[in-house]
Each structure stands twice: as C-alpha cells, then as structure tokens.
Design a protein around this nucleic acid. Sequence first.
DNA 1: AAAAAAC
Length: 531
Amino acid sequence: MEKGPSFLFAGVSFDKKKFATDLARFKENKESENLADDFSFVEGEKTDPEKAMVSFVKKRKRKSIAGVEGFNVFKSSKQLAPAVDKEKEKVEDGPSKAKKELNKQIERDAVFRKKYNIHVSGANVPSPLRTFAELSSRFGCESYLLRNLAEHGYKEPTPIQRQAIPVLLSDRECFACAPTGSGKTLAFLCPMLMKLRCASKDGIRAVILCPTRELATQTTRECKKLAKGNKFQIKLMKKELVRSTDLSKFSCDILISTPLRLRLAIRRKKIDLSRVEYLVLDEADKLFEVGNLLKHIDPVVKACSNPSIVRSLFSATLPDFVEELARSIMHDAVRVIVGRKNTASESIKQKLVFAGSEEGKLLALRQSFAESLNPPVLIFVQSKDRAKELYGELAFDDIRAGVIHSDLSQTQRENAVDDFRAGKTWVLIATDVIARGMDFKGVNCVINYDFPDSGAAYIHRIGRTGRAGRSGEAITLYTEDDIPFLRNIANLMKASGCEVPSWILTLPKLKGKKHRPRRESISTKPKDDEE
DNA sequence: AAAAAAC
C-alpha cells in the first residue's frame, strides 16, 4: 500500500547513511534516557494503568501522528518524505555507480515485496530475504540453524519471514501483521537465535510473552526444536520453575512466559530483566486487551530496561490502538503487513449456516457428523459452561471428543491438547483459550458452534485450519440472535474471497456496543427425560 | 460479556 517514499531506501547501506542512522539512534537513546521513568505504555501514570492507557490513547487520537515526539518511531510515509529527499541529495552527490546500484536495489526490493504482498513502512527498511541461504551470506547465520530449518522442512521463507527476519536482524524494532498460519513464530524465533549467537550465563537475554499457557508451551517447543545443536538455555515459566528456583539469580538465554506470571516474578521474586536484549509480544493485540492483560504487560516492558533492547509485536490482527501504543514505545520501528491488515487467511473455505435455535445447533452438528466426520475437527463455544455441556452431549455419541477450557487443571489441559495432537480425540471442544496461535497439524474443519465475539476472534478461531499452505474449512453456525452481528463476519468472509449471501451484506451496520446474547443451555431437553 | 491471565 505504500506509495514510494517509505521503501525508497530499503536495504541499502553505505557508510554515510549508516552514520546518519547511528547518530539518530544515539540522539534517541539520549532522549529515552531522560524519559526512563515514562518508558511505558502508560506514560508515567502509576496509579491505574488501565485508565491511564485509555485516556492516553484518546489523547493521542485527538493529536495527529506528528504529536509523537521524543520517540523517533514509526512514521507515516508522508512524514518520511523530507528525510528521503535528504537521502536522495546525498546519493546524487555520491559516485554515480553507487547511485545506480542503490536505485537498482530499491527497485528490486519493491518488485519483490509486491510479488509477495508485503507492505512496509518506516525508514530504511532492510531488503527482504530471498532464500534461507541468505541468512548465512547476509547475516552470518550459523550452520546448526540452517540445518534445523532444512530438517524441519522449511524450504522457502514465507512472506512475513522474508521481511521481518532481516528487519529484526538489523536491530530494528518491528510490528508485524500477517495471516494465521503464515509462519510468524519462526519469523521472530529465527532472528532471536541468530542475535543471541551462543549460550551464555549472562542473565536473561530474551523474553517471549504469550497470552495463554498452551501457546507459551508450544512456542517453547518450537524454539527448542530450532535451537537444537546449540546450547541455549530455553525456559518456560512454569509453576515449578517459580517455586524451585531463586529467580533473583535466575539466568537463561530465552524465557517464555505468560504475562501475569512474569509480572509476579518481577514484583515478588525480583527476577532481573535488565539484560534482556530481545522482547517479543506474541498475539500482541490480545496482550494489549483493555481491562485485561495490558496492566500486566506494562511492568514487564518497563523491567526490560536495557536501552538497546529490540522489541517486536506479532499478530494476525493489529487494531489501530495497538499500533498507537506500539508507536509510543518503539524506536525507529518498522511496520510489516502481509496481505491486508485484519483479514482471514485465504486458504480457508468459510461457510455460514443458519441453525435457527440452540437446539437446532446441536441437531445440525450431530447431523453433520453423521454424514461426514473428517477429523481432526475443532469446535469453538462461547463459555466454559457451554464447553462442558457440549462435551457432555457429545460424550454419549460415538465420537471421540475432547474438551479444553481454563476450568480444567494444568494437566487436564495439557492432556486435551496432546490427545488432540496425537489423534486420540477427533473432535476438540474449546473456548477461545486455544483460538490464538495454536498450531495443530492438519485440522480439517473449524466449527464456530457459538458465534465469535468479534472479528478478531473469528479470524483467529478459523485460523486453526488452513495453515502453512494447506486448505481448510470453517463453518459458523448462527441463530436469530446472532443476525445483528452477522454482517461484520460476512464482510471478513468476503474480504478473504468467500461467497456470502447478498442479504447479509445489506443488513444494518451495528451501531454502539450491543453485547452478545446470553446463550441458554446447549440442549433444550431436560436431562431427566432421557430413559 | 466472556475468556484468560497468579498466588
């Protein structure tokens, strides 16, 4: 979407320019030193971070983007124009050979990005990656990592990997938005491992935050897989670790955690994050959710006080307010968007099915399973209670079903995920707990038994299928009560290339914040009637 | 509004 200026100088490095960038960064660091206490999402407000954040965002909304001062962060391409002009002058002064080479490179990068639907903004965005082999030719990647990539079947980088990896390897902060199942995890793990180079006992060096334990576990496993052959200490912040370790002296190369646990470790156990060189906020928009995790994220970001830290945000959905927050804390950030922002993956065949009532849903589900059950299948419901209830209903059927939600014990949750992965259960009934980030291989169908709470929830839920180039199917059941919310989802379906009945698109736009209907019980039949 | 996130 960018119009010229923002990518004009992508990936070029000659000394003069490098000096200019370094100088800019140096100045920035100076400024941020002075602002050390305000170095947070809430700009120095200490009492009620959440309220402060809300007012902060509102305040910022009224101001123009130009109001972001003191932090030379992401800038819109318009604002970049003068800087680019300066660069142009410099080039024109320089030898014509360098100028030609530079222009050629810029041209090539632009064409390449276009080909892969990569949109970038920010100053001097590094050239995208053509092949994984470039990791060693351009960035001195060690052989163990290339070996691991090959061994796990990563042949060619995905679009998000092509752009985010060189950005992070150039020590640039980054916020990245790319579809579900398009390889975001590898896009931050790979540069992280390369930057850390080798194991060291020098404090905690990298932190990854994930919104759920399941995702943290999965990310840890991926990380270990990729780091095989190197001696990195990769730790998941589990209860046992918190209990059995003196966290004030704790040291590891990569620490993966959920926000609350890490915040407590900072407050009570005095864990030291001042040496963290690399911080990733995965599923960033979830982590920033107002009234929720935001207040736990802020102290963590603050505790990572190393001035040369490289932070990055990743998600398939990145609402404007998250970008606003990101801009306010990040230095010289690059924004990478693959495809269009906030859209569903195009490899998913999406369908809407009218089920009339609650009873109709259960009938529809049973019927559809009777006709064809093509496991593995994921079923999302609205609440924990409904998950338990639907599980109870299906347990009487001849279907191997599992269930997962946060009322279960840690072990039960782990078993539910493992059994589903292993094919022991065909159908997994779940709350939104596993809606984000979870990578189950080859899920054929996602069923939204209950209508999702938001467009973002929809995108993430159905994104459990159609991953890594595979195709998938998503069926969303709806009742009369859901009709006011239908249009929103239908638009997402249309935007990702699915057909939608035209009457839905002419439904009135939803105004104000109507909340979703409270659902009755799954089965309308009283249990006692069964003989 | 619910879910998730600690002890």
